[in-house]
């Protein structure tokens, strides 16, 4: 029998952050695609319909929540009282371990990568990449939102990112970039979900449940 001990890996803050982000991203992908490729609502009078209006409303609500969730996640990376994990995003700098991990993940070698950081080298690239993608969708999203809602906090946020709108070459390009990054995020989500299950199966550490309960079950010397 394996002897494994429970180690707390994720603080409550990180877990809450993670699942809210999941809900937001799924909501944003669905409503976002409606905005990009709307279908006509056939029945009823115009005055009784507000489908695109609601789709945009939901998208913006999730978008604003995601913006704050993102900022909170970055805050936690530096100031979490449980474990500020910003250094773990640099796990990829250990090139040797990176190579070992790639070979293990590509099933060409049985040698497992070492467990030096909270994240493996590949994970550090993927999660860092997700945060970078979020920076892009949040900034382009805030521009698209600020164009229409120019009061209060939105107005202040918009004023801060407005130069980027011109730099990118106008709203059409902003919107196009927002759309491209939607696909990159979808790719991340697909691979991320699979890898989480795979890791759970291969390492038997309870990866999936760890994002709920916070604990992984690891062999003591790993």
């Amino acid at each position: 029998m394996d002897t494994r001990t429970a180690i707390k890996e994720w603080s409550l803050a990180i877990r809450v952050n993670h699942w809210i982000m999941v809900i937001c991203i799924f909501g944003l992908i669905i409503t976002g695609f409606y905005i990009a490729h709307p279908f006509t609502v056939p029945a009823g009078e115009t005055i009784d319909k507000f489908f695109m209006g609601y789709a945009r409303f939901v998208h913006l609500i999730f978008g604003v929540i995601l913006t704050f969730i993102f900022l909170w996640r970055v805050y936690l990376a530096f100031f979490s009282r449980f474990h500020a994990d910003w250094k773990d995003f640099l796990a990829w700098t250990d090139w040797k371990n990176f190579w070992t991990q790639i070979k293990f993940y590509l099933l060409v070698s049985e040698k497992k990568p070492e467990h030096k950081f909270l994240y493996g080298p590949l994970q550090s690239v993927a999660y860092g990449g997700l945060l970078a993608m979020l920076v892009v969708v949040v900034i382009t999203g805030v521009i698209l939102m600020g164009v229409e809602y120019s009061l209060g906090v939105t107005g202040v946020a918009y004023a801060a990112v407005k130069p980027i709108q011109n730099m990118l070459g106008g709203l059409a390009t902003v919107r196009f970039i927002h759309h491209i990054f939607t696909w990159l995020i979808i790719l991340f989500v697909v691979v991320h979900i699979y890898m989480a299950f795979w890791y759970d199966v291969v390492f038997k550490e309870g990866t999936i449940s760890s994002m709920v309960g916070g604990r992984v079950f690891r062999k003591p010397h790993d």
Binding site: L107, K112, W183, V190, V191, Y194, V201, V202, F203
Partner: peptide
């Protein structure tokens, strides 16, 4: 790309199981 990723995942999962990887 997403389709290719899913095909890759299926192959990866199959191989992992077949080899008893790890």
């Amino acid at each position: 790309l997403t389709g290719a990723a899913i095909v890759g995942i299926a192959a990866h999962a199959g191989l992992t199981a077949a080899k008893g990887h790890g």
